[in-house]
Amino acid sequence: MGAQNAARDDEFRAFTGGAWARLLRTAYLLAGDRHGAEDLVQQALERAYVHWNKVRAADDPNAYVRRILVNEHARRWRRRRPAEYLVEAPPDRPARAGADPDDRAVLLAALADLPARQREAVVLRYWEDLSESQTAAAMGCSVGNVKSQAARGLAKLRESSSLDGLTTIGGSR
């Protein structure tokens, strides 16, 4: 039994090592700050560890854990919506070549102003580049709801006066 547990733990550590950066990036976009993102990822991985046999048996363990992450974010949001988001430092991933870091900060602030479900839909669809069905699976809703939430979120981003200087938001500007 001890060798079996050790092998299970090693498998989970390997998964965590490969998934950490991607989960942290997604959590940062959802939570709006690095510390909240780290807490969110740790909580999601804690839940994944407890149910590791079910997670590893899934068709896509990464999608399963991403779903846990999104659910954990929604659970937090229902408990207490933060009054504001303070960003101490940019995420680990550098901006794309030619991107202005100030534009990135403005976009992150605009994302933080979206309601939680709209932000989830926009982040998963357009930042993580998931399909509508993958996004629906991660959010635990229908594809139609993803389309609706993403469209509303993009519309709010397009209307945001703080984004006037940016060149593209969801195909316009």
Rank of each mutant, 00 (worst) to 15 (best):
P115D: 15
A116P: 00
A116T: 07
A116Q: 12
Q118G: 09
Q118M: 12
Q118S: 03
R119S: 11
R119Y: 05
R119P: 08
E120N: 10
E120P: 03
A121E: 09
V122L: 09
V123S: 02
L124E: 05
L124A: 03
R125E: 02
R125G: 03
Y126K: 07
W127N: 01
W127R: 04
W127S: 01
E128H: 01
D129L: 13
D129G: 01
L130A: 05
E132K: 11
T135Y: 06
T135G: 11
A136S: 12
A137S: 13
A137D: 13
A138E: 11
M139E: 11
G140E: 11
G140F: 10
C141L: 08
C141R: 01
C141G: 04
S142Y: 08
S142L: 06
S142W: 07
V143W: 05
G144E: 14
G144D: 15
N145W: 07
N145K: 12
K147P: 01
S148T: 11
S148G: 12
Q149E: 10
Q149N: 09
A150N: 09
A151F: 05
R152G: 14
G153L: 10
L157N: 08
L157F: 13
E159A: 15
S160D: 15
S160A: 15
S160Q: 02
S161G: 05
S161L: 10
